[in-house]
Structures are given as structure tokens and as C-alpha cells.
Design a protein around this nucleic acid. Structure first.
Length: 550
RNA sequence: UGGGGCGUGGCCAAGCGGUUAAGGCACCGGGUUUUGAUCCCGGCAUUCGUAGGUUCGAAUCCUACCGCCCCAGCCA
């Protein structure tokens, strides 16, 4: 692909790992994990993490686990797990092991029991509101819970009761005993187990308590032998806790957490919570709506794994909170499809043209290259006849300055065919242009016209042979670059994010193309055959427009 | 006003005491072109948040200040 970054992506994490390997750290092993919670579909932000985790392990001959962080059965589902697996695979990555945090529930519980015995954890019986109050604030130290000095024996008994289901949700919680006065709020005796009597899709009804993230994640990393635990910036404050748990439980592995900046993209949202809101409210048509920055949405939109990976390369990995412009993403898919997509012609908004100088029933077969600079992509035949369709926007009665297309009395080149001249405009009673009568210059097929210059070229489709297609053109989902900065982000939704062209006409060669096939419709953009296509009528999504410097 | 981070052109981002301060996206020219695309050529930071300091030499080291992001779930 043109423009593809040739160098290995260099960033501070890669440099750190390179150093680790050189220093024989972790016995030169680079083991990473991609640990999504199965509570939604993956999006571009996850793609960045996936490319980083799988990419870096691959580069250093290590491995990567896919681990579901399934510690909150209230929000998680198997549908999401299936979608996540499909998306990671589609991106082209292979995990070493498919893991689940729930696989470690027994071990996690054993470690918790040991922490209680070591007087490093206790059962607190304060309500969640009381715990919040006791925690203090950003500027005030917290106060110890009255239950903090409960004896290990008593805590153990209560913990056992919590596990067996003797208590109601919220009655007790298991907390680490660290430092209520810590300037890092995460260290003020964080809860590590809560009572939750929810059925778990993997462990069934075995557990009435479920471990929390800070406790689960580091131990899961250690148990799996992860060496480099890469996560986003918001967990930076959690690193001391991550290390505290590992130091005080002593699992076999010694993973180290390193944080990088999350992805932000203009004119969209990359937050599972916000995305789920758009999906459930019906603002968009499911998780794979082509307007969404989900992997499933991008796939349906016509993006390729290579383009998404290239995007991840181009944006880099740093510790700053970067906001990437949409053009960076768009240019990745343009660069790829410019090279690989066969060219076709399609008219989204048809305007009929009658070539009055062309005999009524004559048909001429034209052989047209599938790609202007790649002859190896071959050619196809298209029919030229008396009646054609051109794009309504390619004709102007009162043209703006520098308009290079068809005007009254003017000439224009029909792409791969003849130069025509507009002789007459036909209008209906209301004054709408319904048809154009043109004459053609028979001496302009494959050659320049004699004695004059025709600068415009427009696309067309034969009225007799063209087939109807539904073409969907997408625009940005939000009309401001930072929708989350609005009081209510749904108010920033772009009402014109989808335009459907029901009477589009495409070359007959598009008939029967399989979903996922990509083309360039000349002068317009790159398009992909949608899964909703039927053998009779192709349904086509616009991936991205061509650049338009006019 | 506690703690943790981040500040290099419009947006990303290399840079790791001695370089004319990479590269991509965007933008502005000019050339080729039967896609206003692609491609090609050229332009685009005397300066690295600001102010001091160290040094023969600072985007890189030190100090202070300024700005922005994250943290007070029994979410992850």
C-alpha cells in the first residue's frame, strides 16, 4: 500500500521493551494481553490497544492472550464475547490463549483469604454511602472504618458467609488494609470483593461475590505470566495498587503495568458507554452501523484490517491525550483502495440525457480499463447508447465560476466515451430539469476533439443497461469535533449523517457482486457492497469520498 | 488549593546535550492526467508552553511559573 509506514512503529513502549529484552528481563519474554470487558463491541480505541499489544509481542517473538475481564456479570454477555473474538480475528491477530478472569476466581479467593489472615484485608460492614464519606476527598485524608480493626478470624467468617450467600448485596465488602490517609485515593482501603448474587455465564451460580478490577487484573496478569501489562492513562493512579496486590499475594509472575494515551477521534465518540447509548436508543442501526467507529461498523463501512492497522501506525503511541483528525483515518483507506479497488461508474442522482445524434437502437460496446494505472487489473465492457444517465449535479444551468462539467451549450467528456454538447434543456411544468438533449462528436472516442479543449469529464451509465441500486452515503455522526463537550452529546448528532439514494443506477457489472467487494465509483469515492444486497439489487455503502480539491 | 500525567507547526509525531528541528495528515503553489482522484515536484516551526539558570553548546539538564487531562464506583 502506498504511504504505508515502512519503519517499525517506534514509541516509548517499544523502546522500553527493547531495553528489557536487551537486559534479559523476564528471560527475554514479551507476553502481553488484550483484556476487554465483554460489555460492548470493540471500537477504534480498542484497535489501537490490540495493534500495540499483539504487534509488540509479535515483534519480539512473544505472545498475547485474549482475556475477558468478566468480573461484572450484570453488564456482560456472551454476545459481546463472540463479537470481540470475531473482531480481533478479523483484524488479523491470533491470541495464544483465550482466557477469562473468571477462570481465576478460586485462586483469587484463596489469595483474599490469605490477605485476611495476614491482616492485610478486612470485611467492612459500612454502607457504600458511608464508605464514600469515610474515604475523604481529593484534599482531605480519609478516616478508618470502624470495622477496620475487626479480627482476621471475624473477617474470615464474614467473608465465608458472603461467599455462601448468607448476606444481601451491599451488606459487606472486602477491603484491602492499606492507608486511609494516602494522597492516592486508590490506596485508601480499596474494596476488592462485593456481594453480587447474579448468575455468571461461565461460573453459573457458584459465586455470590465477585472480585473488583484492581484486585483481579494484576493477579490475572501474574497468573498468565504476562510480562508487560499495557493499559490506558486513566489507570496510572492504579499502578501503586496493582503493585501492592502483587507484592502482598506473591503470585508467580511479575507483570509490569505501563500506560499509554487513549485514542480520541474528532466528530465521533470512543466510549463504550456512549456507544451503547446510541445503539440501544436506536439513533444508529445496531453496533455495526457504518457510521459508528466500532470495528463491526468500520467493517460494514468497507474499511479493511490493513487500513485500520495502518491508522494505528500513523497515529503513534505516546502518553499525551491526542485527538486525531478524521482525515487521518480516511486517508488510510483511500491509500489502500486507490491501489486495489477496480473502477466502475455509478450515478447516484440520475438525470436523463438523450444523445439526439445517436441512432435509436444502436449500441456500441466500449472496453474500459478497470484501473487507470494498473493494466494488470484488466478491463470490462460497457454499453453506450442513445439514452444515458448522468449525475444531476454534473449539470448546471447557471454554473458557478470554474465549473468544469456540463452547461447549456457547453461540451463535456463522458468518461471513457464521447464528448457531448448540451443542446436543449427539457423541463416539467414546475420548471424542474427532467432531461437533457445532447449531440455527440463521433470523432472523440479515445481521442481529443479537433481544434478545441474540453476540460470536463463526467461519469455516466447507460439507461438501457444500467441497473437500479440503493446507495448509502455516510457523513460524520456528529457535527462538532468534540461531541462530549456538549451538554448532551446526542444534541451534537449530525441529522444528515446518512443519505440514501434509492434511484441510483450502476453499471450492470455490479450485479451479483458479493458483500464486501469494494470499488471506486469514478469521480465519487470508494464503495463497498453491503450485506443487505440481493441478487436483483445491489445495496452499496460509500466507504469514503475521493479527495475533492475543487 | 491532594495525588498522578501531559505540553515540539492547524492535527498527530520523531527527537534522549553538538542534526539545516524527521515523517504523516491538513494546507498553499506548479507539472502530468479522458476521475476536479492518483502520481510528480516545490513551499509550509530561526524554533520546541513561558521565564530564568547550567553549559563552549539546550527541544533535550536544573528551577519557577502557566495551561491542559485523569482520580473521591461495592464500574472497568
Amino acid at each position: 500500500m502506498t504511504g504505508e509506514s515502512d519503519a517499525t512503529p517506534n514509541n516509548f513502549i517499544r523502546q522500553m521493551i527493547e531495553k528489557d529484552v536487551a537486559n534479559n528481563k523476564h528471560n527475554k519474554l514479551v507476553a502481553t494481553r488484550f483484556p476487554p470487558e465483554p460489555n460492548g463491541y470493540l471500537h477504534l480505541g480498542h484497535a489501537k490497544s490490540i495493534c500495540l499489544n499483539f504487534g509488540i509481542a509479535e515483534e519480539f517473538d512473544g505472545w498475547t492472550n485474549l482475556r475477558f475481564d468478566d468480573t461484572n456479570p450484570d453488564k456482560e454477555s456472551e454476545e459481546y464475547m463472540a463479537a470481540i473474538k470475531r473482531d480481533v480475528s478479523w483484524l488479523g491477530f491470533e491470541w495464544k490463549s483465550l482466557c477469562y478472569a473468571s477462570d481465576y476466581f478460586d485462586q483469587l479467593y484463596d489469595y483474599a483469604v490469605q490477605l485476611v489472615k495476614d491482616n492485610l484485608a478486612y470485611v467492612d460492614s459500612l454502607s457504600s454511602e458511608e464508605i464514600r464519606t469515610y474515604r475523604g476527598s481529593l484534599t482531605e485524608a480519609g478516616q478508618p472504618s470502624p470495622y477496620r480493626n475487626r479480627s482476621p478470624e471475624q473477617s474470615l467468617e464474614l467473608l465465608e458467609g458472603m461467599k455462601k450467600g448468607d448476606f444481601e448485596e451491599g451488606e459487606h465488602v472486602l477491603r484491602l488494609k492499606i492507608d486511609m490517609a494516602s494522597s492516592n485515593i486508590n490506596m485508601r482501603d480499596p474494596a476488592i470483593y462485593r456481594i453480587k448474587k447474579t448468575h455468571h455465564y461461565r461460573t453459573g451460580d457458584k459465586w455470590n461475590i465477585y472480585p473488583l478490577y484492581d484486585y483481579t487484573h494484576c493477579l490475572s496478569d501474574a497468573i498468565e505470566g504476562i510480562t508487560h501489562s499495557l493499559c490506558t492513562l486513566e489507570f496510572e493512579d492504579h499502578r501503586p495498587l496493582y503493585n501492592w496486590v502483587l507484592e502482598n499475594t506473591g503470585p508467580p509472575g511479575k507483570p509490569e503495568q505501563t500506560e499509554f494515551g487513549p485514542l480520541n477521534l474528532e466528530y465521533t465518540v470512543l466510549s463504550k458507554r456512549k456507544l451503547i447509548q446510541l445503539v440501544t436508543s436506536g439513533v444508529v442501526d445496531g453496533w455495526d452501523d457504518p457510521r459508528l467507529p466500532t470495528i463491526a461498523g468500520l467493517r460494514r463501512r468497507g474499511y479493511t484490517p490493513a487500513a485500520i492497522k495502518e491508522f494505528c501506525n500513523r497515529i503513534g503511541v505516546t502518553k499525551s491525550a491526542a485527538v486525531i483528525e478524521m482525515q487521518v483515518l480516511e486517508n488510510c483507506i483511500r491509500d489502500e483502495l486507490n491501489e486495489t479497488a477496480p473502477r466502475r461508474m455509478a450515478v447516484l442522482d440520475p438525470l436523463k440525457v438523450v444523445i439526439t445524434t445517436w441512432p435509436q437502437d444502436d449500441i456500441e460496446t466500449l472496453t474500459v480499463a478497470n484501473h487507470p494505472n494498473q493494466p494488470e487489473m484488466g478491463s470490462r465492457n460497457i454499453q453506450f447508447g442513445r439514452e444515458l444517465y448522468i449525475e444531476r449535479s454534473d449539470f448546471e444551468e447557471v454554473p458557478p465560476p470554474k465549473f468544469k462539467r456540463l452547461i447549456s451549450g457547453g461540451e463535456v467528456r463522458l468518461r471513457s466515451a464521447y464528448v457531448i454538447k448540451c443542446d436543449q434543456i427539457i423541463k416539467d411544468d414546475e420548471g424542474n430539469i427532467i432531461e437533457l438533449h445532447c449531440s455527440h462528436d463521433p470523432d472523440t472516442l479515445g481521442k481529443k476533439p479537433e481544434g478545441r479543449k474540453v476540460k470536463g469529464v463526467i461519469h455516466w451509465v447507460s439507461a438501457r443497461d444500467g441497473i437500479n441500486s440503493q446507495i448509502k452515503v455516510y457523513d460524520r455522526l456528529f457535527n462538532r469535533p468534540d461531541p462530549l463537550a456538549a451538554d448532551d452529546f446526542t444534541e451534537a448528532l449530525n441529522p444528515d449523517s446518512l443519505t440514501v439514494y434509492d434511484s441510483a443506477v450502476v453499471e450492470p457489472s455490479l450485479k451479483g457482486e458479493v458483500a464486501g467487494a469494494r470499488f471506486q465509483f469514478e469521480r465519487q469515492g470508494y464503495f463497498v457492497i453491503d450485506t443487505a444486497s440481493t441478487p436483483e439489487q445491489p445495496v452499496v455503502n460509500r466507504v469514503v469520498s475521493l479527495k475533492d480539491n475543487w
